[in-house]
């Protein structure tokens, strides 16, 4: 046989849409899949845990500060008032996850819009928006959030808004950087030459290409927001009417030396949740990395 001189190019094979390739790479990443399973378990526990372990976390059910297995204590012991720690862990996730989700939505909306407009239009719009962004960035985030929560009533909503307002600048800068990189590429020029409007170019042409790093960043911010919420709750700035892991730790800090279980189990829940987001974020980062494509 000799070399084929002509023919239809075999191409690079059927790689499929860029998203599908990323998914393939993600699934092959054991740590990332573990993170996803862990997160799914936590979400499942938060949503449906009370069906399987039907115990009101705010009820006093036994003598206070009994460790796991001691006396008539439930599986994970009781806190300083005699409330069930396991019930707290099972139910505490909903506040943390809700707050983080709302905060991250806020971050995405503010950060992505400002960053996109800033990067796409440039000029004085960019300068003005970036000054605002820097202003928010130099404010100490925790202090800023504390002020906001203190100004309004501490509630799930105010905590979420506070965290969102304190966290968006990073996303805005990342979005702007992506838009700066992408807006001069040939396909954007081609879209303009085919008569597309600015709105269309920003959201239909450039934005989907900027998504991969944004998704990674948002995932990591989600983990950070959970920590943030716990920190605020620990400092007594959480919603006093709801159960949350951070609040459990905060309220138990006085009795920590007499009952390690009162802070350890909610702490582990926070750790596991943040870890899961972290692992997923890392996995996405690798999955979107074009250098690892086709492997």
């Amino acid at each position: 046989m000799t070399l084929p001189v002509t023919g239809v190019s075999p191409e690079q094979g059927d790689l499929g849409p860029p998203g599908r390739q990323a998914l393939r790479l993600f699934i092959r990443n054991k740590a990332a899949v573990f993170g996803l399973v862990l997160l799914a378990a936590i979400v499942f526990m938060t949503l449906f845990g009370s069906f399987f372990y039907d115990q009101d976390p705010s009820r006093i059910i036994a003598r206070p500060l009994q460790g796991p297995g001691e006396g008539d204590a439930p599986a994970l012991g009781t806190d300083y008032l005699g409330r069930d720690v396991l019930a707290g862990v099972v139910n505490g996730g909903s506040t943390s996850l809700t707050v983080a989700l709302v905060a991250v939505l806020l971050v995405a909306v503010i950060g992505v819009s400002l960053g996109a407009i800033s990067g796409y239009y440039g000029g004085w719009i960019d300068v003005a928006l970036m000054r605002v962004t820097e202003l928010f960035q130099v404010l100490p985030a925790l202090l800023f959030a504390m002020v906001i929560v203190a100004l309004f009533e501490p509630s799930t909503r105010s905590v979420a808004i506070a965290i969102g307002l304190a966290s968006w600048p990073q996303t805005a800068r990342l979005t702007r950087a992506e838009f700066l990189r992408l807006k001069n590429l040939e396909f954007v020029k081609a879209a303009r030459a085919s008569g597309a409007s600015d709105f269309r170019i920003i959201w239909r042409v450039i934005f989907p290409n900027a998504l991969p790093p944004l998704i990674v960043s948002i995932t990591l911010i989600m983990g950070a927001a959970i920590l943030f919420e716990s920190g605020l709750a620990f400092l007594g700035l959480g919603d006093p009417n709801s159960q949350s892991w951070g609040l459990m730790i905060g309220l138990s800090r006085q009795t920590f030396l007499n009952g390690w279980w009162t802070v350890t189990f909610p702490g582990m829940a926070i750790f596991a949740t943040v870890l899961s987001f972290s692992l997923i974020g890392d996995g996405l980062q690798d999955a979107f990395n074009p250098k690892l494509r086709g492997r």
């Binding site: 070399l3 023919g7 190019s9």
Partner: peptide
């Protein structure tokens, strides 16, 4: 008006080009 292209120099596992 041809549309044929140059084949790829990538050979899948277990195959290799013949020497001319």
């Amino acid at each position: 008006l041809l549309t044929d292209e140059i084949p790829s120099p990538v050979w899948p596992a277990g195959t290799s080009p013949d020497r001319v």
